[in-house]
Simulated scan of single mutants.
Amino acid sequence: MSLRFAVLTLLDIEPGSGYDLKRRFERSVNHFWSASHQQMYRELHKLHQEGLLDCEEQIQDGRPDKKVYSLTEAGRATLRQLAARPAAAQKIRDPFLLQLFAGHHLPPALMRAQLERQLAEHRQELATYEAQNARFYKRPPEQQQMLWLSHQPLLLGIETEKAWIQWAERLLQRLQQEESGAQN
């Protein structure tokens, strides 16, 4: 899968400028796919040059003109082709888990501090996902029906963060016990 697939999918839902697209990306696809602002704009230009996107310039008062992108029929056909391809299962690639794997080389207090930092980040991510989930349910019912499959990665993200937090809380308890035992 690719950034191309993500961009086409987001523009299929609603046309938009590069800025609009980046904001939508950050509120949805960014939870399971990453891209920089520059990568997003490069991909938009490439898709436009290939005839997969139309670009309409909108004049704005006191600001640079805004380019609004939308899918062409060729873009929709490409999106259907990309959506039909089998997706490979993704392996977890998490630097903290690698650090934890070598954690026996660290004092329990240091490992605990690292885990507490990670736990705070995952709790924040869960809060972000839950806020986005609440916004989804404020959409009109016909949009919820149209986008219910697009909503599923967010629901998986919520469950994943909850599971990670539960796992980390148990691990934190164990590290605290280890630390207490080392001090006695």
Score class of each variant (00 low, 15 high):
Arg4Phe: 04
Leu10Phe: 00
Leu10Asn: 03
Glu14Met: 13
Pro15Leu: 05
Ser17Val: 05
Ser17Leu: 08
Tyr19Phe: 11
Leu21Glu: 00
Arg24Met: 02
Arg24Lys: 06
Phe25Val: 03
Glu26Tyr: 06
Arg27His: 11
Arg27Glu: 11
Val29Lys: 06
Asn30Phe: 08
Trp33Glu: 13
Trp33Asp: 06
Trp33Cys: 08
Trp33Gly: 05
His37Cys: 07
Gln38Pro: 01
Gln38Asp: 10
Met40Val: 14
Leu44His: 00
Leu44Ile: 02
His45Arg: 15
His45Asn: 08
Leu47Ser: 06
Gln49Ile: 03
Glu50Tyr: 10
Asp54Trp: 11
Glu56Ser: 10
Gln58Val: 13
Gln60Trp: 09
Asp61Trp: 08
Gly62Asn: 14
Pro64Gly: 10
Pro64Lys: 15
Pro64Glu: 09
Asp65Ala: 15
Val68Met: 07
Tyr69Lys: 06
Ser70Met: 06
Thr72Gln: 03
Ala74Gln: 14
Leu79Cys: 03
Ala83Thr: 13
Ala84Arg: 11
Arg85Leu: 15
Pro86Glu: 15
Ala87Tyr: 07
Ala88Asp: 12
Ala88His: 11
Ala89Phe: 08
Gln90His: 09
Gln90Asn: 09
Gln90Lys: 14
Lys91His: 09
Arg93Pro: 01
Leu97Val: 00
Gln99Lys: 12
Gln99Trp: 04
Leu100Asp: 01
Gly103Phe: 02
His104Cys: 09
Pro107Cys: 10
Ala113Tyr: 03
Ala113Cys: 05
Gln114Glu: 04
Leu115Cys: 00
Leu115Thr: 00
Glu116Asn: 05
Arg117Gly: 03
Arg117Met: 02
Glu121Phe: 00
Thr128Gly: 06
Glu130Ser: 08
Ala131Trp: 07
Gln132Phe: 11
Arg139Ser: 13
Met146Lys: 15
Trp148Ile: 08
Trp148Val: 11
Trp148Cys: 13
Leu149Ala: 14
Pro153Met: 03
Leu156Cys: 09
Ile158Gly: 02
Ile158Cys: 02
Glu161His: 07
Glu161Met: 11
Trp164Ser: 03
Trp164Phe: 11
Ile165Gln: 00
Gln166Lys: 13
Gln173Trp: 05
Gln173Glu: 15
Leu175Val: 00
Leu175Ser: 01
Leu175Glu: 01
Gln177Thr: 15
Glu178Gly: 07
Glu179Tyr: 01
Gly181Met: 13
Ala182His: 10
